[in-house]
């Protein structure tokens, strides 16, 4: 999932200090699962904003709504009939949803209510860890399904570096050395000899480096 973190209320308040009405807009997908921007977080933020505005002596209409997704136009259409009641939207979706909401409603100011952090998985309740950077050209087949681009602090394709100590990365004892994980996996798979294959120089043009990315599937287009 896309993992996000709630922004501090103060920061959100700084964004909406001029508005007279604001819709707090949640998303039922990733941000719900990582408890940053689902229906519940919408309720909490809206309640906090209402109490803050009251204390400031401001009459601000704070609305609440949570959509199935903010990254698909058909769900964004569901707020078409209510959006006119608001000057601004605080979106608790990931950066995609925030931008897509703004694209759909060009006359509305849309502010981020979360910091979108990474694509990751839940290690346990309340702990998320990054697993993919979307480089656009997956190399997991060669690395025992452990991604060095994401999990090595130096994204070394031929690691580990000399800083790997007792399975940990040089940047922190709390970070696992991706290459230790890769080697452990290769060993478990009986493929340790694969370690000696030099990983070729990567074509980063499918990554962020190549500019904003777009996928067109002619077989699906209508």
């Amino acid at each position: 999932m896309i993992v996000a973190e709630r922004k501090p209320i103060e920061e959100i308040l700084g964004q909406v200090k001029q508005v007279r009405s604001v819709l707090v807009l949640g998303c039922n997908e990733c941000v719900t699962v990582c408890e940053a921007g689902g229906k519940k977080e919408v309720g909490v933020l809206a309640s906090a904003l209402r109490m803050l505005f009251l204390q400031q002596g401001r009459e601000v209409n704070v609305g609440e709504r949570t959509l199935e997704r903010q990254c698909d136009t058909e769900y964004l259409e569901e707020i078409r009939d209510m959006i006119d009641a608001f000057d601004a939207v605080v979106s608790l979706a990931c950066g995609v949803g925030i931008q897509f909401t703004a694209e759909r409603y060009p006359s509305k100011a849309v502010y981020p209510g979360v910091n979108t952090c990474f694509m990751g998985a839940a290690l346990e309740r309340g702990v998320w860890s990054e697993r993919c950077q979307g480089c656009g050209s997956c190399i997991l087949a060669a690395t025992g399904a452990v991604c060095p681009i994401t999990r090595c602090a130096k994204r070394l394709l031929n690691g580990p570096c000399g800083g790997s100590t007792a399975g940990k990365c040089e940047i922190s004892k709390d970070v696992e050395c991706a290459w230790q994980l890769i080697i452990d996996r290769l060993k478990a798979l009986g493929r340790l000899e694969d370690y000696e294959r030099l990983s070729p120089i990567k074509d980063w043009s499918t990554d962020r480096a190549g500019g904003p990315r777009k996928i067109i599937r002619e077989d699906l287009r209508s």
Binding site: G43, S47, M51
Partner: peptide
Amino acid sequence: VDVLHILRCFE
């Protein structure tokens, strides 16, 4: 009891 229940009380 959720955070929201507590906040609603104050609201």
